[in-house]
Design a protein around this nucleic acid. Structure first.
Lengths: 248, 248
DNA sequence: CGGCTCATTGACCAACGTCAATGCCGGTGG
DNA sequence: CCACCGGCATTGACGTTGGTCAATGAGCCG
């Protein structure tokens, strides 16, 4: 059981006591493994576990009437996938693994009980859902009002920032374990056009790709091109300031 | 001071004790009035009040680099506009009045203190932000993956449901105090095209308009046309089940 | 080697954006 | 009471972004 990424994340908001951390650990259940493209929970479910992503990438999505899929969030290690279910009646969307994932489950009731008695943790978890909401707002802006190439650029900027904050980047590159089709389903475009966007960013000398790895050739310029301002991520520490980097 | 709409809303989630209600009332500050199109808070602010909308409509929005405005949420009576600021460092977006508004302010610190000691209220407020987040997810789906006429239809369905829940509808119609240009800024399209969408919905016999009033000619059919499923609103009581209606 | 999944390309098409004009309506000053 | 004005809705002609369809590669694996 490895709560470190979650704790690091929550402590961006508020210092947790040793007691808090133990309580979290005590509330945790089993660790489960999911293969790529495997679903974890479905729209309409009332799951009795809350899921914490330990390793790999996952996403929230909805399936539309016509079979289209709309991806609404990417989840990376340290992200809680569905705190919702501690308070809402049932899932209004599904979520599943993008790459192979290790997921830690918390029995819903243990977490709910814990939050009844520990206001600090309750506030910390609320804070993390507020950050998720801020990201969602920016995704709406992105899809609603930026042309397709900037849309892709913006998402890449976001993900390298978030990935860096949990130590998942390697200098100027990171692994984005997502197909162009999935990216297209994320940003409301077709796979064909997604591909054209990649060509443009490559052509502008902004990124290079190597399999699923994205290499940022010029982050400054990519951020300017994509109108990216990391404020909405509410990260206390900027890119490159994370303890994981400091260790090196 | 009128906390009724907020309390009604929170009690959809959890019964509040008389004590809870008094505590909320005690935390409240002044009531302020804003004219149409007037801003309440700006991106980057760290306001020292949390705002509760009592009367009128407001919206969250961001201004883009090129001057475009993206609206990210509509707020109606009973909605808290910015609980965020009790936990996040600063506003990552602005919000302002659409129509004339009456707004009740809570000093940030009083509300924060209240939540430190009252877990039930804390959970109730968290719940309400989770519902906001669910709405935001659906807006993303709407903009990213529905053609423009369904987009408009879907928004109208959402707003009549939400308006009905706070007693703001009149049989099959409601006041939508928003220009076509503002609707366009909401759904990532141009005012011209927004107008064409209205024509289509009218032409299909789905809605009629009378100034800012929207008359739903056939809700069933409008919902089907727009692929609207109210589940994401997490309303406990469906349209028409609200106490305000029951009184009649 | 054959079969899979995913990236890439090109030709063509439709949804939606742009530009610019016109009309409607309520408000206001003379 | 009437002329004028400003904000908004509406229209039409035309341009562009991104969608569609269908084919070709490129890499991976049994």
């Amino acid at each position: 059981m490895n709560l470190v990424p979650l704790i690091l994340k929550l402590e961006q908001f508020q210092e947790l006591s040793a007691e808090d951390k133990h309580a979290l650990e005590a509330a945790a259940g089993e660790t489960v493994t999911y293969g790529p493209k495997q679903d974890v929970i479905h729209q309409g479910d009332r799951p009795d576990h809350v899921h914490l992503l330990l390793e790999g990438w996952a996403c929230r999505y909805k399936i539309m009437r016509n079979g289209d899929r709309q991806i609404m969030a990417y989840l990376i290690p340290g992200d809680l996938c569905d705190v919702h279910v501690t308070l809402l009646d049932r899932m209004d969307h599904s979520f599943g693994a993008l790459s192979a994932c290790r997921i830690l489950t918390f029995p819903r009731q243990s977490l709910a009980d814990l939050m009844q008695v520990n206001g600090r943790l309750l506030r910390a978890l609320w804070w993390s859902t507020l950050v998720d909401e801020a990201i969602l707002r920016e995704w709406l802006v992105n899809v609603a009002s930026r042309p397709s190439e900037k849309r892709l650029g913006h998402l890449i900027c976001e993900m390298i920032h978030r990935a860096k904050a949990v130590g998942l980047t390697d200098d100027h590159s990171f692994e984005l374990p997502v197909t162009q089709e999935e990216l297209a389903d994320t940003m409301g475009m077709t796979p064909v056009h997604m591909n054209r966007c990649f060509q443009t960013l490559r052509g502008q000398g902004l990124i290079t790709t190597d399999g699923r790895r994205i290499i940022i050739d010029d982050l400054e310029r990519l951020m300017a091109f994509s109108e990216f301002d990391p404020m909405y991520l509410h990260q206390i520490k900027g890119v490159g300031q994370h303890p994981v980097d400091a260790k090196q």
